[in-house]
Amino acid sequence: MLDVRAIDCYYGEAKALHQFSLRLETGEILCLLGRNGAGKTTALKAIMGLVPVRRGSIVFDGTDLTKLASHEVPRLGIGYVPQGRRLFSELTVEDNLRVGLMTRNSGAAVRQHVLELFPVLGERLGQRAGTMSGGEQQMLAMARALCIAPKLLLLDEPTEGLSPAMIALIRRSIVELKTHGVTTILVEQRVDAVLPIADRVAFVENGRVTAVMAVAELAADRHMIDRYVGLG
């Protein structure tokens, strides 16, 4: 479904990704682990076309994303929840959802499904997004991305700053999406929050993927987590 082939990305002259490669199958949940500045967020932005790729290719369902304009990428069915949520905080919940729905002209059924997944948003449609709690804002960021009806969902630290109850809700919704065939890439610092739901883990160091392993293998090799994330 997604094949990231040896991409190089730069911020100005600083190289952020070196020969970064990754493969995902449909319905898989892959977690990118690594220390701050390792290149995890840049990798997600490169897939979204928000950071130019100088070398390599990113093939999604047979289409090379590096050949498309940035705004065409989400229209293929790639949803993105950026780090820090990046909601349109002056707009209402309803308008934030409309932005997601407009991307692929998703219908009322998609909106209905999203509101069933996060019922609290249905009660707050007229509220300004910036006035909601952190957990509710994260739900809205997820919901906005789901309004695209994504085939691939990119989540950048979705549990950052959330309460355990809210983390559990976010995890449940990711698992529920998997049952609908949605493929997910998760960037996380909180290993404990994602390992129970991830299928595989890719370790990122200095802008490249240094190891990929199944979660079951990882359980027997905890020093990998210490090495790459610094958390046990």
Partner: peptide, 24 residues
């Protein structure tokens, strides 16, 4: 209008607008 929403979204956050298919 839809175009007004697109303009406001672009005003608030150009990068996130792009990530939602808006041709900035």
């Amino acid at each position: 209008t839809r175009f007004g929403l697109i303009m406001r979204v672009t005003q608030f956050d150009r990068e996130t607008a792009t990530a939602f298919g808006i041709p900035v």
